[in-house]
């Protein structure tokens, strides 16, 4: 099973012939991901990396049956690219682009709300189901196949967690980088829910950050399932000062509930195994699994 992406996903790359899109498309193809083509307006009809290029997403859906897209379009046009994919009937939209204006995302969220699709990101590393599909910019070799699901707002911190999980003798079912922006398509709770209902996932690692209430909502959901699967949680930014944006646009402590401390307390109260140190994710996971 796994979630969101697998070996049968028919994936296109939006921004296919661009520098970023082209580089990562090559990496994904090398990993064995089923890339069926790409979209770059006005370059339709060409071939890039041995795959067809289309002018529009609709055309890609029609001609090669695309059902998943990964977006590398620059921030000024990325919101539009997400809406185009949703309108064309793409089911899984993964947007890597960082720096999309917040008001663009307000519109995008409203536009896709009645479309039959899931948006992951923006400002995220993507999604990987090891040995099946890497639809993102993560280093594939770090993610060995296994039965641990990962949900994270951050890129490199996801790699860190995956590395610890693998070194602890376990592996990854699907890792979902949900993104670090104020508005993202699939917040923590929705991503955790996918893994909670995935028969090939036994436990979940959930990595959050200061800012917003996504982790708190996820914690309440996890508790409402009767803690069906063990969850190890970490919140980055315990030492972040109030009122400063820490790299990710969404990582800012506004009020009391935004702090790492407050979030960790909510996680712990809801039966999540909270680690204070990011170096202890793998170790704690093994302890929890052996209980």
């Amino acid at each position: 099973m796994s979630v969101l992406v697998n070996k049968d996903s028919k994936i296109i790359v939006q921004g296919f012939t661009g520098k970023e899109g082209g580089f990562h498309a090559e990496q994904m193809i090398e990993y064995g991901t089923n890339i069926v083509g790409g979209v770059t307006p006005k370059k339709g009809g060409q071939t890039h990396l041995g795959k067809p290029v289309f002018n529009t997403v609709s055309e890609a859906v029609e001609k090669v049956g695309a059902d998943t897209t990964i977006i590398f379009v620059p921030p000024a046009f990325a919101g539009d690219a997400v809406m185009e994919a949703a309108a064309a009937g793409i089911k899984v939209i993964i947007c890597i682009t960082e720096g999309i204006p917040v008001q663009d995302m307000v519109k995008v969220k409203a536009y896709i709300s009645d479309k039959d699709c899931i948006l992951i990101g923006p400002n995220c590393p993507g999604v990987i189901t090891p040995e099946e599909a890497k639809v993102g910019i993560m280093p594939g070799f770090v993610f060995k196949k296994g039965r641990i699901g990962v949900v994270s707002k951050s890129g490199t911190l996801t790699y860190e967690a995956a590395d610890q999980i693998v070194k602890a003798g376990l592996g990854i079912s699907t890792a979902i980088g949900i993104g670090g922006d104020p508005i993202i398509g699939t917040p923590t709770k929705e991503a955790v829910e996918l893994l909670m209902n995935d028969p090939e996932t036994d436990a979940i690692v959930m990595i959050g950050e200061i800012g917003g209430n996504y982790e708190a909502l996820a914690a309440e959901y996890i508790s409402s399932t009767g803690n069906k699967k063990p969850v190890v949680g970490f919140i980055a930014g315990q030492t972040a000062p109030k009122g400063r944006t820490m790299g990710h646009a969404g990582a800012i402590v506004g009020g009391h509930d935004d702090t790492a401390e407050a979030k960790m307390a909510i996680l712990a109260k809801n039966g999540i195994h909270v680690v204070k140190s990011p170096a202890e994710i793998g170790k704690t996971l093994v302890e929890v699994m052996n209980k």
Binding site: I210, A251, S277
Partner: peptide, 29 residues
Amino acid sequence: LSYVNLDGNVGCMVNGAGLAMATMDIIKL
């Protein structure tokens, strides 16, 4: 470079915002 000045005694240089925050946390711990 995305940089925020703080009051502490251990500097850090990290790739990625999430890992950078986590590294700050490690320093404190």
